[in-house]
Amino acid sequence: MKLTGRSLSTLLDYSVDEIKYILTQAHKVKMEKMNNIFPKRLANKNIALIFEKSSTRTRSAFTVAAFDEGAHPEFLNKNDIHFGKKESTKDTARVLGRMYDGIMFRGFKQDTLNDLIQYSQVPVWNALTDDHHPTQAFADIMTLQERFGDLQGKKLVYLGDAANNVAHSLMIIACKMGMHFVICSPKSRRPADDIIIQCEKIIKETGAKLEFLTDPKCAVKHADCLYTDVWISMGEENNPDCKERIEILKPYQINQQLIHATDKDSTLFLHCLPAVKGLEVTEEVFESKNSAVFDQAENRMHTIKAIMLATLT
């Protein structure tokens, strides 16, 4: 499958077959790494890593994945370059596109990412914007495949604040994989309407099921996986509505009682991390046998490697 030269803005850009191809490659490169096989397929490639927002998993995953394949990753903090200050995004993109083979962007506005894609003329990968987080969703699905194999019809329940980038990307990829995807949140914290409309079109083709519920115990019944994210995202800490948001989200905490309400011992717990234990999830669940959050974190590296290989070679 030819994906060379493609950027990754959102998962809406990629077909079901393209998503499955990248996931297949992710499993392959994970096995290679486990067996100390490093083919260096990105030798002499240079990767720009632009960070407006701080990171642990994303920076580490891109850096190690690039080194494993023989590429050179260059960390570019927003305070280190003229990006968006003395120089427009358009001009920065045209400069970087002449020097680097690929660009990773982790920041705020989707429009900034799209400008990088339009003007750099090299593959640009969305490592998080306010609207989408596709590299996280790839790792989430890879983790589920490792536990359950074929995901058609598997029930994935996302609880808590669903008006965010993680919920958007997870909803898209779950629908494309034919899953039974449930958003369980207050009505005021549901995903953006335009993305819901896109997902309603997808499920007609894939046989997926999409539900929006408000009762956690009802939502999680027979769930194969429970997923949550922080209730206050990076950059929102000083918003005046934070205290009110936490209050309305308290019933959606993933705790042991909610795990029991699934009626399944095998229900998986996932979280994109970092977690605020005691808010969206309890320490007990986070450290339980149901939790696969560190497998999920590791899989960021393997899926990112697969994305870079697919689009650069």
Rank of each mutant, 00 (worst) to 15 (best):
V157N: 09
V182W: 09
G84L: 07
L156S: 05
G178N: 05
N165I: 06
L128D: 13
N79S: 09
D140F: 02
P73G: 13
Q110T: 02
V122D: 01
Y100H: 04
F83D: 01
V157C: 10
D115C: 10
M171S: 07
F108T: 07
K78P: 02
V166H: 02
T129C: 05
M142Y: 05
A65N: 04
F62G: 05
F148T: 03
A174C: 00
C175H: 01
F138T: 02
V64I: 14
L116E: 06
S169D: 09
D140R: 06
P134C: 09
V95P: 14
Q121V: 05
G102P: 00
G149L: 03
M179F: 00
A163V: 09
A66N: 05
W125G: 08
D101K: 12
A162F: 14
N126E: 13
Q136H: 06
S54M: 13
Y100S: 11
A139C: 10
Q110S: 08
R57I: 15
M142S: 12
A93P: 05
Q121N: 14
S55P: 07
A127N: 05
D68L: 03
N164S: 13
A93W: 14
N77V: 10
E69Y: 03
V122P: 00
L49I: 06
L151F: 04
D80N: 13
F75T: 15
I50Y: 04
A162Q: 13
M99Q: 01
G153A: 08
L49G: 05
H133A: 03
G149H: 06
V122Y: 09
K154P: 08
F51C: 15
A137I: 02
A71Q: 04
L159E: 11
D130I: 04
Q110R: 07
M99V: 00
G178V: 11
V124I: 11
P123I: 14
R98I: 05
D80W: 12
L151I: 00
A66C: 13
T112V: 06
D140M: 03
F62Q: 04
Q110V: 12
E69D: 10
E69P: 09
L96G: 04
K154H: 00
D131I: 07
E146P: 14
D91P: 08
V122G: 00
T135Y: 07
K78G: 09
F181Y: 05
K78N: 13
